[in-house]
Each structure stands twice: as structure tokens, then as C-alpha cells.
């Protein structure tokens, strides 16, 4: 055995093993969105589900992101065929009501689905407290770099994307993020 050569060969194998070990600590599907920190893509979409109570808008109204300057906005992309969207629905509805008075606006964006099926789904789920918008031809979804549904975006008061959440979101996660956003922006005009 020539130990010097053997050691050299082993030394060459170490980086490969290191890279693979690093790979094990990563999730290839967790792709970091480049959007947070950037201005949120603008949109002007029409309401198809009005929402409830104080939050309600008229069906057919156009919602523009630009009209919400100075407000925290939560955008939730969903679809009636999306099974995971059922898990987060109750939490979203409750949080939307809770934070309405603090100036937070929630909007659902229907992704790759049809209006009538969206409406039926909302009915089946026992209502949705905030308005949902139609996104014809998924253009807004593509603007937001959507990978699938559900995904939730938080737009801060200065109109930037603050967070992106992939998969079903819980009430706790929602309030944590909203509280910190409201705090951050408290001093801002």
C-alpha cells in the first residue's frame, strides 16, 4: 500500500461527499422566490365573490393593488380543485375579519379555475369572509411567480412583497406575519 497516494485519492472524494451531504439538508422543492423586497406586481382584477360583512365588495368591482397604498394586503391564490386550499380556508377567513379594522385587506385570487366552481366551493366551505377575484388566463399568477396553489403573498404598506408562503397557511402564521408587518410600518406615514 502506498499510503500517500491512497490519502490523496481519499482527499479527492471528500468534496463530493460534502456536496451530497449538503444536498440532504436542502429541499429541492423549496425554491426561494425573488419577489420579497420588490414592489408587488400591480393588478386590476374584478370581484366574483363579494366576501361578507364589512369586507364585502360588489361583484364586478375592479380591485387595484395601487388603491391600497399604505395598507397591508394579503393575496391568497386558490382553486376549487386544490385539496390543500380546504385546509387553510377557515384560518384565512377568520384572520381576514380579525385584521380588517387594523387596515389589512385580504383578497382571494382564483387560479386556473372557473367562476361558477369557485362560487360553489365557497358555498360548500361555508363562505369566505373576504372578496375573491378572477385572474383571467393566470396572468397575475405568473406575475407573482406562482408555482402552484395555495400560495399566500403579504404586501407591505409601501407596496412591496414582504413574504411569500407556499402551501396551506395557519391562523398563527398569518397573525405572526401580519403583526410584524403592522409593527414595522407603524412609524411610516
Amino acid at each position: 500500500m502506498n499510503w500517500k497516494r491512497a490519502t490523496t485519492a481519499v482527499a479527492m472524494a471528500i468534496p463530493v461527499i460534502g456536496i451530497l451531504a449538503f444536498g440532504l439538508t436542502r429541499d429541492p422543492k423549496a425554491i426561494v422566490s425573488p419577489l420579497p423586497g420588490k414592489p408587488a406586481p400591480s393588478f386590476a382584477l374584478s370581484v366574483f365573490a363579494p366576501g361578507e360583512g364589512a369586507t364585502a365588495l360588489n361583484v364586478g368591482d375592479t380591485v387595484r393593488l395601487a388603491d391600497h397604498a399604505g395598507q397591508v394586503v394579503v393575496l391568497n391564490f386558490w382553486a376549487s380543485w386544490c385539496l390543500q386550499c380546504r385546509d387553510e380556508h377557515r384560518d384565512l377567513s377568520a384572520t381576514a375579519t380579525e385584521y380588517f379594522d387594523k387596515g389589512v385587506r385580504f383578497y382571494g385570487l382564483l387560479y386556473n379555475d372557473q367562476e361558477s366552481f369557485g362560487l360553489r366551493w365557497i358555498q360548500e366551505m361555508g363562505g369566505q369572509t373576504y372578496p375573491s377575484l378572477l385572474d383571467p388566463r393566470t396572468r397575475t399568477a405568473i406575475d407573482y411567480g406562482l408555482y402552484g396553489v395555495p400560495e399566500t403573498f403579504f404586501v407591505s404598506r409601501d407596496g412591496r412583497v414582504a413574504y411569500k408562503h407556499i402551501g396551506p397557511i395557519s391562523q398563527r402564521q398569518l397573525s405572526q406575519k401580519l403583526d410584524s408587518l403592522l409593527r414595522d410600518g407603524a412609524g411610516a406615514p
Binding site: 500500500m1 502506498n2 499510503w3 497516494r5 491512497a6 490519502t7 490523496t8 485519492a9 481519499v10 479527492m12 472524494a13 463530493v16 461527499i17 451530497l20 451531504a21 440532504l24
Partner: peptide, 21 residues
């Protein structure tokens, strides 16, 4: 599998390189 790859790479490369002469 990672542990196995490590063992295979280290043991066999060491053996082959050590006997290369």
C-alpha cells in the same frame, strides 16, 4: 446511502490508489 457512498468511495479509491504502483 450517503454513508455507504462515503465508505465505497474512500475504501475503494484508497485501495486502488494505494496499489497503483
Amino acid at each position: 446511502f450517503l454513508a455507504f457512498i462515503a465508505i465505497v468511495l474512500i475504501a475503494s479509491f484508497a485501495l486502488v490508489a494505494g496499489n497503483s504502483e
